[in-house]
């Protein structure tokens, strides 16, 4: 019970540019975590936001796409600056089976890096489909390939890899090979189609969801998924097909900072 779950300021040991708008921050802190678990990162006097761990143990890191106020501020931060961290939170991916496929869209691939590492180290045959709208937004494809995964790249505009969506590449793979599990993180509409595809092909899916997070530890109710009452921060962020099928919000609705429910397309 004697737990302190408040952000503790730690030094940024290193900043790595991954793409034109994605940076990895290596933090001076040890955290043991499961792939897919996240931390809350606090930028003093600005905001605090959730990020999946992309490094654990002695080289803890988070990988951040520049989006709004908080992430823009983070992108200005340098080695030696202080970032507050609390966590790890949520329950991550369950690494199961003998042969699996990972599907990452955009910066969603961040959540798949530690998963690929763990699966491959366990001897699981791993294929990764890494996609983005265009070449410069492909994240971690090379890192995941280097770990030993079979790699498929897709871009909407064909600037790298196969021209098309990750879902098209997945459909083709599923028609050719048998997988024990599909793991995915990316735009929710992409994950929605992947869950449908998994169901059609009888392959279980684990997907990592995003919602507006406040407490991060299951108390405030901000990140709830209707009609299940499941909380992204505590019961997720990774959910399996059985839960995802019950979540009518999945693919369609999310709550904004006030708690009002909106369609995904209405988020600026």
């Amino acid at each position: 019970m004697n737990k302190a779950d408040y952000p503790v300021g730690v030094r940024i040991n290193k900043v790595i540019s991954e793409t034109h708008d994605v940076k990895t921050f290596i933090l001076n802190k040890e955290i043991s975590a499961k792939p897919g678990q996240f931390v809350m990162a606090w930028i003093p006097e600005v905001d605090e936001k959730p990020f999946t761990l992309t490094g654990k143990g002695k080289t803890v890191s988070i990988t951040v796409k520049k989006r709004g106020k908080a992430t823009s501020k983070m992108h200005e931060m340098k080695e030696g600056d202080i970032l507050g961290v609390r966590g790890p939170y949520g329950h991550g991916f369950d690494v199961v089976g003998k042969k699996i496929v990972l599907v990452g869209g955009g910066y969603g691939s961040a959540a798949l890096l530690l998963l690929a590492e763990e699966a491959i180290s366990k001897g699981i045959e791993t294929t990764a489909i890494i996609g983005a709208d265009t070449e410069k937004n492909i994240l971690f494809a090379d890192k995941i390939e280097k770990l030993g995964a079979k790699l498929v790249i897709t871009t909407d505009d064909g600037s790298r890899g196969i021209k098309g969506f990750t879902t098209q590449a997945l459909e083709k793979l599923l028609s050719e090979e048998k997988f024990d599990c599909i793991y995915t993180c990316g735009p929710e509409i992409m994950m929605y189609h992947i869950v449908q595809m998994g169901e059609k092909n009888n392959v279980p899916v684990q997907a990592s969801l995003e919602r507006w997070i406040k407490c991060g530890f299951g108390v405030c109710g901000q990140c709830v998924l209707d009609p299940t009452g499941l909380r992204v921060c505590k019961d997720g962020p990774v959910f399996g097909s059985a839960d995802l099928k019950k979540i009518s919000d999945f693919g369609f609705f999310a709550r904004d900072k006030t708690g009002a429910k909106k369609e995904w397309k209405d988020f600026a």
């Binding site: 779950d5 408040y6 600005v46 609390r86 406040k214 530890f217 108390v219």
Partner: peptide, 18 residues
């Protein structure tokens, strides 16, 4: 509607929540 404060909004310390 009220937007409330920015995060951190809820944290736990050794003897309770803040």
């Amino acid at each position: 509607a009220k937007r409330g404060h920015a995060n951190p909004t809820v944290i736990a310390f050794e003897a309770g929540l803040l």
